[in-house]
Amino acid sequence: MDKQLLKWAITNSNTDTAEGEQQQPAPDVKERGQRRIDPEIIDAILGKSDAVRMKEAIASISDPNETVENKEIAFDNLEMLVEQIDNANDIEKMNLWPKLISFLSFAETSLRIQALWVCGTAVQNNIKAQKAFIDHGGLRIALEMLKNTNEDGEVKSKALYAVSGSIKHYTPGLVQFEKEGGYESLLTLLQTSDNLPTLRKTVFLFNTLLLQNPEIVAKNIEEKGLSRQMIKILEQYGEQDEDLTHKILVTFLTLLRNSPKSLSPEETSELKHSLPELKKKYGSDVMLSGGEWDELEKNLSN
């Protein structure tokens, strides 16, 4: 390879032998327009394009004869590549989304996790990738994973990452999320998961969506029983996990700011009953600011 590279560099030099004297090609070298240069030499000099590297990663992952370890390495490389918005958009341009989404059905848990990770990274703050992921059925499959009680917990965590990325700050995605039974899937997740990080991420997603589209999201949170389930989680973990408690209270504060009558009388009573002990445990200026505590309590009393 080194000798080839050296030969290529020498034969393609534009250096004149003397001023005004035209350099003549070596006798055994064809005219430049007819010469075929070894692609390996070009790759060695310029490096492969990101598009080529993405295709190679997809091909490696698709290869039934490739080892799981090598597929995991290919997934790692692909995930780093799609962090760049142009590369994420190229997934659709190169018609790679169908193949990528097919990887969500791998039998190996580690590969399902990494496939979801790639999808979730590609759709972050990227409207074109969000649309492509949803149009190719990625959202539907990820939501099915969330409500599958037999699915691995880490797979569900990464599925939530992909779902969240595909609908945040993207109204058509939120509309499709509702059509695909997204709220019901998240309710099942809250009811069946005892993984605290997953519970935190789910509640935080509700708060984000409330800020994005308060009227529609508030209605679904109440009608689908999500507010009642959050109160149950608060009663179960409220004095054990400060971060989860904070996210639940902030979400209820956002909910009540935008839809003061969204909680049932029973839910209002239960949540109001929980606040004094939580305020005492975490302090009036730690979990929420003093003004936020007052606002939450006032909204629950109206």
Rank of each mutant, 00 (worst) to 15 (best):
D2V: 13
K3P: 01
K7E: 01
W8P: 09
W8L: 13
A9Q: 05
A9L: 12
I10R: 11
N12V: 15
N14S: 14
D16Y: 15
T17G: 10
A18R: 07
Q22H: 07
Q22P: 01
P27Y: 03
D28F: 10
E31T: 14
R35H: 07
R35D: 14
R36F: 08
I37N: 08
I37E: 07
D38I: 02
D43I: 14
A44Q: 06
I45R: 13
L46F: 01
L46A: 13
L46S: 08
L46I: 09
D50W: 09
A51F: 00
V52P: 00
M54L: 00
A57Q: 06
A59E: 03
S60M: 08
S62Y: 01
P64C: 07
N65I: 00
E69V: 03
D76Q: 05
N77V: 05
L78A: 06
M80F: 05
M80P: 01
L81I: 07
V82L: 09
I85M: 13
I85C: 05
D86C: 05
D90T: 02
E92S: 15
M94K: 06
N95E: 07
K99A: 03
K99M: 03
L104V: 02
A107H: 02
E108F: 12
E108C: 11
T109S: 14
S110G: 02
R112M: 12
L116W: 00
W117M: 11
G120H: 14
T121P: 05
T121C: 02
V123C: 11
V123L: 02
N126E: 04
I127E: 08
A129L: 07
K131F: 11
H136S: 12
G137M: 07
G138K: 11
L139N: 00
L143A: 01
L146A: 04
K147C: 07
D152A: 05
G153S: 07
L160Y: 05
L160G: 02
I167P: 10
I167D: 08
G173F: 01
K179C: 12
E180S: 05
G182K: 03
Y183I: 04
Y183C: 05
S185G: 13
T188K: 03
T192P: 10
S193D: 06
L196N: 04
P197L: 09
T202E: 08
N207L: 06
T208W: 14
L210A: 07
L211A: 11
Q212C: 15
N213A: 13
I216W: 14
A218P: 14
K219Y: 04
N220R: 15
E222K: 13
E222H: 11
E223G: 00
G225H: 02
S227P: 00
E235C: 12
Q236E: 10
Y237K: 11
E239Q: 09
T245S: 13
K247F: 06
L249K: 10
T251H: 14
T251S: 12
F252I: 15
T254V: 15
L255N: 02
L255T: 08
N258D: 10
K261I: 03
K261L: 08
S264R: 07
E266A: 03
E267G: 08
T268F: 10
S269P: 00
L271N: 04
H273L: 13
L275H: 06
K279A: 03
K280T: 01
K281M: 09
S284F: 14
V286F: 04
G290C: 12
E292K: 15
E292A: 10
W293T: 11
D294K: 15
D294V: 15
L296Q: 07
E297T: 14
K298Q: 11
K298N: 10
N299Q: 08
